[in-house]
Write a protein that binds this DNA or RNA. Structure first.
Lengths: 235, 235
DNA sequence: AAAATAGTGTCTATAAGACATTATGTC
DNA sequence: GACATAATGTCTTATAGACACTATTTT
């Protein structure tokens, strides 16, 4: 066993020393809006880095799991009531990532539909805002690294799972779905190949309805097949 | 911002309360030996769970990163001097995963060549042993979950990267390589298809030498191509 | 009928999987 | 020459990508 000597002993090794790293959760909350991939940033009200932009963070209570802390932070910050897709990303643990003391943070990323989410500024923050991932203010701490990592993971996730549905409403057109992919991957896909793949994998089912009040041919509205809300592997 | 009220305030929010989760690292150290996938287990010398088997764990010092703590635990426990492949796995953060207090643990997995590793029992442990993943003693805490998770990740890693080389010596035959895959995935692969794939991807290069003193046709000895020690994505 | 977007099929190239025989060394 | 393992190629099937025209609705 490799433990700090201070914690060693035949009985108890953990309540003997105050000098241990703290732990927080840090959230990268993504949405796709206006053809852009956006992340939710907060402007910090308190020190350290007061007045700077950062990803939402939160401490972990003694009676809640790390995952619960992340969900709580998500719900309290975005105002969204529904459960959204939330996944652990990576734990960032460089001693100097926080300028004042050693704080390890467990990163999570969340995918939300911007139409179902109400941003609510709480008393703990100076501001809350969606920013395009391609054009956002400088971030405090190592939050830029965390955001970059989250974008990579999001792309991986969208390639191999049905995560894209998390960005869409209950019913959507195949063009909507393709737009989400093109936005996140920042490139175009061939319409025929895209639809071929989606249909072969039975990812969606036709609702029987079409778009209304469009000045062109209406599009069929689809919904995710069966596994509503669940993110499943494809391919 | 979502923070425990106790930590709030315009100035300082982290050195005001003792009642926070602790953090450790937990290692799943894999090797392939005698046609079996094995993990390194330790028998605990101290409470809690004294006398039970568990994965190696260690606290994080205030001046080292989580990754460094994992490397330190690895080197101190296995006695291996060389750098080995080490990757962060997942952070396990259920409040009740430790019976006495809330300890969050950052899981890592390591891949080592059993011939290059010397297990060294330190004063901190009662015993250290390689155990087959398919047949090991009961594990303390949630270490069985961590081990299962690590096996899944290992399989994924071996499917998409050159991680398998970490289990092999500098020079090996293609049969050796295939044996590693068959052991980890617990199934057989077609010899011709396996070799076709390995060679098309330029994963290995022929050393010019062959096995000696075998009572049958000698096999060519290969080494990993270029990226010695590095694990790269394939496919 | 003009504008705007929805919707569809073929061909080619590449990768994965099934499958059996010959080659080369030791004893 | 018997034994044991090394080494190799073809055929079939599935998947990915390139590519252009017709259909349906509104105004």
């Amino acid at each position: 066993m490799v433990e700090d000597k201070k914690f060693e002993g035949p009985k108890d090794y953990y309540e003997t020393d105050f000098n241990r790293p703290s732990v927080t959760v840090t959230l990268t909350i993504f949405t796709v809006e206006d053809g852009e991939l956006k992340a939710l940033l907060i402007n910090r009200k308190y020190e350290p880095v007061k007045g700077e932009w950062a990803l939402p963070t939160g401490f972990i209570k003694m009676d809640e799991s790390v995952e619960t802390a992340a969900e709580r932070a998500l719900h309290e910050q975005t105002g969204v009531k529904e459960d959204v897709y939330l996944e652990q990303l990576y734990t960032f643990g460089e001693p100097d990532r926080n300028p004042e003391t050693y704080i390890i943070t467990v990163g999570y990323f969340a995918l939300v539909n911007s139409e179902e989410v109400n941003i609510s500024k709480t008393d703990d923050v100076a501001d809350v805002e969606w920013y395009p991932v391609k054009d956002h203010p400088e971030l405090a701490f190592d939050h830029k690294d965390i955001l970059d990592y989250a974008v990579k993971r999001l792309r991986w996730k969208m390639e191999y799972t049905t995560a894209a549905f998390s960005f869409l409403p209950d019913r959507f057109t195949l063009t909507d779905l393709q737009d989400v992919y093109e936005t996140v991957f920042d490139r175009e896909f061939d319409k025929r190949n895209f639809r071929k793949k989606v249909k072969k994998q039975d990812l969606v089912e036709y609702t029987g309805e079409k778009t209304k009040n469009v000045s062109h041919r209406p599009a069929k509205l689809y919904r995710p097949n069966k596994e509503l809300g669940e993110i499943v592997e494809i391919l």
